[in-house]
């Protein structure tokens, strides 16, 4: 592995920022260098949000990426926006609970996860971001379950601790229920 970049994008409320942060934190626990760069500003309010995570064995130069290796598209606008810039042979992970159309690119590897449905089955639709994260871990092999768990344990503290187990469960389910399209 040298340097990998991941863009996670979706609606404001879908938790893509936290998803990116957990990816970065897990990779850090795996001994990698990481950067996490959010989109911020007016588009955040109600609109779409995205963040870019760079994972590398070496010091990271640019946290800005023009052709990501992986795109996690949680809604249609995100898929349309980022499918275009995805690297050739890159990974496109689609939240097929929300995205009801096919991607146009034929030179990329497409994976699907019904993130909302799986989260709903577990009992809390809010953990859809962790379902997608689990699917991402499986599809990309970039982060290990052990470090995801550690990252979650460090993030879900205090009042949030009650949500730890369901988040971990969501990651596991995501790893299992991912489909190769």
């Amino acid at each position: 592995m040298s340097t990998y970049s991941v863009v996670a994008a979706g609606f404001g409320g879908q938790g893509v920022m936290l998803m990116g942060k957990i990816i970065a934190e897990a990779a850090m626990h795996d001994g990698k260098k990481v950067t996490w760069l959010p989109s911020y500003g007016p588009e955040m309010r109600g609109g779409t949000a995205n963040c870019t995570v760079v994972i590398s064995d070496e010091d990271i130069g640019s946290p800005v990426v023009d052709t990501p290796d992986v795109v996690i598209a949680m809604n249609i606008p995100s898929m349309i926006k980022f499918e275009e810039v995805l690297k050739k042979d890159g990974i496109l992970l689609i939240n097929s609970s929300v995205v009801d159309r096919q991607p146009t690119r034929k030179d990329v590897k497409v994976f699907k996860i019904k993130a909302n449905d799986v989260a709903d089955e577990i009992g809390n639709v809010k953990v859809l971001n962790m379902v997608a994260l689990g699917a991402f871990a499986k599809a990309s092999g970039l982060i290990t379950f052990g470090s995801i768990k550690k990252a979650l344990e460090e993030t879900m503290t205090g009042k949030k601790k009650v949500f730890l187990d369901i988040n971990i469960k969501a990651v596991q389910e995501g790893m299992e229920k991912i489909e190769k399209a």
Partner: peptide
């Protein structure tokens, strides 16, 4: 700059 202010790194 805004990027350094908003991004995260270990």
């Amino acid at each position: 700059d805004g990027m350094l202010g908003q991004m995260m790194e270990p």
